[in-house]
Write a protein that binds this DNA or RNA. Structure first.
Lengths: 225, 225
DNA sequence: TTTTCAAAAATGTTGGATATTTTTGCGCTT
DNA sequence: AAGCGCAAAAATATCCAACATTTTTGAAAA
């Protein structure tokens, strides 16, 4: 089944295309938590050969998006309260460490990336509030992601950035679910964003880390670490 | 080429067997940093079909042991001073966080695992000093790994433990190289080990974290974070 | 109702084949 | 001799089809 005309030029390989499509569908809960992922069934929806699909699922398993059980195939990673807590704990630690290091070492180019990301995010938040659909939700979430990446992009640790990315991806479906349910306080978010930008530019590490922490904890909803 | 009679009962799948064999050979620098990993060539050494080998390499890429470049295959991850610094930074942060959480939440079973791991390690260190060959090196390193895992095993965060594991694996070849070159101070290590065990059992978090940090920084050799 | 066991389904693996891309090497021009 | 371009060779990425093994299912027997 051919769906999005990602004409093989945009995405490098078939496996990468499959992976990003499935990743997206997991984020939007088209593929539900704990759902069994049978190879042949997936091939009918997404295309690709059995090997490409297996390889793709292996990649997603390494990213933590799906779980692989020997001789029993793959399933979408479960999404319990426990999982959310764990994922956000890791996001918090990665992003705190990354921001701390970036604020020590960041140059003008870094500041510029951060300011740009803050701006794009504020626009995306306005749009998703005005007309909340899948498309605006996606760009909103992507803007959040870009900001997170930007904040830690001067940490000078490729592995830390990769990890932060991974855990952000894992947290996506929880945030998008909260968005759908209208459980996101955009006013508080934009206040925090302004304060965070200010703290970052003033290189006030303590304040910035505290605000970042607030922001991530917010994603927890009711629970507590 | 059949090598180690891992009779298909010990390891679950072919891919997992291949992966652990290659992982080991990367750790022992049989496969050198930046070395090109051609599928057919690897198959002659390790067996497996072309697909199994690809899948295996994909897994190792996700673990950070090899690097995948689109349309250009796989190569062993490079091992520069930069890489070492980055890996140890991540190990340090993961293990510090894990130990801190474990010391808050750990029960008697956890303490028991830790004490057992310390004991096994002290024996392994004696052996590797007495007769330093590949076998004792492997058991020594594995004992170190078991201790690391044990220390953070009460942190109640599966993802943190998985990350710590991953970065330990990535740091392996550096440590084994240092061991081969005789650049490891076993006296200092055993002193630190004793002190660390004491601090852990006394639940003296500050002291324990400091000792753990010393231990990991030691792996850096000359460099500095 | 529970247990047992054979049939069906799904996974893991392999071989071979093909398209595409990258690398290599050789001859040509300057 | 150095640099360039293009064809040949190598390697990667993909697919199809098939088979072995394992898990799951479902129906008959206790």
């Amino acid at each position: 089944m051919v769906l999005f005309g990602k004409s093989k030029k945009t995405e490098e390989t078939v496996v990468a295309m499959l992976a990003s499509a499935i990743r997206r569908d997991i984020s939007f809960a088209v593929l539900a938590p704990d759902q069994k992922l049978k190879i042949d069934q997936l091939r009918q929806s997404y295309g690709g050969s059995n090997h490409s699909m297996r390889e793709c699922l292996r990649m997603l398993a390494a990213e933590g998006m799906v779980e692989a059980t020997s001789q029993r195939g793959f399933r979408v990673t479960s999404a319990t309260e426990e999982d959310l807590r764990d994922i956000l704990l890791m996001r918090l630690e990665c992003e705190k460490l990354g921001l701390e290091r970036s604020m020590k070492a960041g140059d003008i180019a870094w500041e510029t990336r951060v300011v740009a990301a803050f701006h794009a995010l504020s626009r995306a938040e306005a749009e998703v509030q005005a007309s909340p659909d899948d498309l605006t939700a996606l760009t909103w979430d992507e803007a959040c992601h870009t900001l997170s990446s930007a904040l830690i992009s001067a940490s000078d640790s490729p592995r830390l950035m990769a990890m932060a990315d991974q855990f952000y991806n894992q947290s996506r479906r929880f945030r998008l679910a909260r968005l759908r349910e209208g459980r996101i306080d955009f006013t508080a978010r934009s206040d925090r964003a302004r304060a965070l930008q200010e703290a970052v530019l003033a290189r006030n590490s303590a304040a910035a880390l505290h605000l970042l922490e607030q922001d991530i904890i917010e994603d927890l909803g009711a629970s507590h670490l």
